[in-house]
Design a protein around this nucleic acid. Structure first.
Lengths: 337, 337
DNA sequence: CAGCTTCTTGCAATCGCGTGCAAAATTCGC
DNA sequence: GCGAATTTTGCACGCGATTGCAAGAAGCTG
């Protein structure tokens, strides 16, 4: 263990020849300190390398400044992008992000939330999985705010931010129809995440309304490899699809690569492809993928703005759910445009 | 603000009919509590939803359990991967990760470290940028450990973990020579990061030793777009290179795409390509990139193991620097193998 | 200079927890 | 059943900060 420790306000006070309180007030915006003492305190603090102990401050103020980000598969392009946006905006808001990784296992999210409670996080943002109702209650009762992003949960209290997946699905169907495609397909994972389900439903419904039939295939996770497998399955059918909507961009990349290399198909002339998320790779020359951009910046903004509100969510009703629409990014993987 | 607050040990003690110390001891491994009181405490804690306040505990123990990860460009595939590994292993070690984003601006890393100090982090892991010497001293003096990953800094105290870039560069040169390439090129960014510089030096030196000349081109950041520009510059030369080592996989992806689409070159028959980082995309069918895998798991392991050590690094000498070798991942972007 | 208001400043309590110390309770040996 | 050894338990203090309160300093008016 460390022999020498962090420097405390006491030491600064001693050096500056003032009381502890004066030091504290110097670092508390809006507190009453004369210009002279403030200068002396700041000087002493600078010399000693003093920094306010946020652990102790959090204890007193009952506000730690910590926001927990609970997420699985951090290394995935889309997840990493939303993580980046959240941490950046949190920092600008004077908060700090605590990152907790979850996995698919049961209770993983619950454990993460317990950790958030232990550190008295001001709020937790949940990007993966869904916590048990009792834990949600515990958080709300404890005064910890909850933000659920693209999670399907109907209990009041947490702020719910969702992207209008069904609408996106419907717009893709229209685009495919306009491109003259006749045999549509939807390539999904087996994850069964609510947003994926909504994308599928919206797409299938819109296609039906347009008089087009859709074949749906589901396999594996939402990654590149699953996309390849889905291509194998869909492109070997007797009635080969001429347009496929992949539930995520990663799936789409795997799908396109397999379609070209293993089936010799040209995109978009023989096969139209659409994805979702607008990950960086979607813009690469090898893919030029038409896809939907999740408004990560606005998602983060809504979440963080709410944290500055007084609407703490324990009044039993909670904040209004927010639904944002995804922006269609048109590239060359669909004919026309 | 929240009206009702987190439940405290006091309340648990009251409900269980014991003293507050008993509660504290119940949650302190190795403390002396009878089986009966422990049960009663645990029951009361469960019913009330009590969780030890790590802010207060950190204050007492002088050990917060927080480890700061200081990094820029979180959304980049390689960065995201190492972030994932670090957070996972930290969680397994009973610590928790605090994520701080930096940018290229001056003092960005310093500000991040100040934040780490404010939260009394047990350690900070620096993945981007380089902190000012005075801040490093302050951290060490305060008992906060520092881990520098692929940073070039020679002051003792922090744990330094580096990948043997020069060796990797040299191995690529050999591989190119064996593939019969004659005109080598190195595609680098302008970032001037020490590891990038070492890759370049190792490659150029080894090529010279093999009697092969190398043309070096540098442009932009380490991303996909820069790779495209570098391809423009290198492939329009009168003596077009027949092998290129890109400083990162992202550069390589951009380079390959441009080489194929804009110059109609086939990889590896007309152009051999190598990258560095082994990001997920390197394994995609469109790239099949031969590259080097940074041993992120071992990097994280070394870092976290050291945090459990008593070698705090303030004895003036500090821990021995660690150099790990990158693993060559052979795919089809170089002939032969 | 008296009398008043307005700022500053120090004292002391508080936040939730860990822990040394001594008293109380239990166990043990015989 | 009694004294000694061993747990178990409670008290009280400290960790490093914030903040209400009251006293002291300074400024203003006439």
């Amino acid at each position: 263990m460390a022999s020498k420790l962090f420097v405390s306000a006491q030491e600064v006070a001693h050096r500056a020849g003032v009381s502890r309180s004066a030091v504290s007030r110097t670092f508390t915006p809006g507190a009453s300190v004369s210009a002279e003492t403030r200068q002396r305190v700041l000087k002493a603090a600078e010399e000693l390398g003093y920094h306010v102990n946020h652990l102790a401050r959090g204890l007193m103020r009952n506000e730690s400044g910590i926001v927990c980000l609970i997420v699985s598969d951090v290394a995935t392009p889309y997840r990493a992008a939303v993580l980046r946006e959240l941490t950046l905006q949190l920092q600008n808001a004077g908060k700090v992000a605590m990152l907790i990784n979850t996995d698919r296992s049961d209770g993983s999210v619950d454990r993460a939330l317990h950790q958030a409670i232990r550190y008295r996080a001001d709020a937790s943002v949940i990007l993966s999985g869904l916590p048990d109702k009792s834990i949600v209650q515990l958080c709300l009762r404890s005064g910890q705010r909850l933000v659920l992003i693209n999670r399907d949960d109907d209990q009041p209290g947490p702020l719910r931010i969702n992207v209008d997946d069904a609408d996106a699905g419907s717009r893709v169907a229209t685009a495919f129809a306009r491109a003259g495609c006749r045999r549509l397909a939807f390539a999904n994972s087996l994850a069964g995440t609510p947003s994926l389900v909504r994308r599928e439903k919206g797409f299938v419904a819109a296609a039906a309304a347009l008089g087009l039939e859709v074949v749906v295939e589901r396999y594996g996770a939402t990654g590149y490899e699953a996309g390849q497998v889905l291509a194998q399955r869909l492109l070997t059918r007797s009635e080969r699809p001429d347009a496929v909507f992949c539930a995520t961009d990663l799936l789409a990349c795997g799908f396109m690569d397999a379609a070209r290399r293993q089936f010799g198909l040209a995109v978009p002339s023989q096969l139209c492809v659409a994805g979702f998320d607008n990950i960086e790779q979607a813009s690469w020359l090898s893919y030029e993928l038409t896809t939907f951009a999740q408004p990560v910046d606005r998602i983060a903004k809504y979440a963080i703005d709410w944290l500055g509100t007084d609407d703490s969510g324990e009044d039993g009703v909670g904040p209004e759910p927010i639904t944002l629409t995804a922006e269609l990014i048109w590239r060359s993987s669909i004919r026309g445009g």
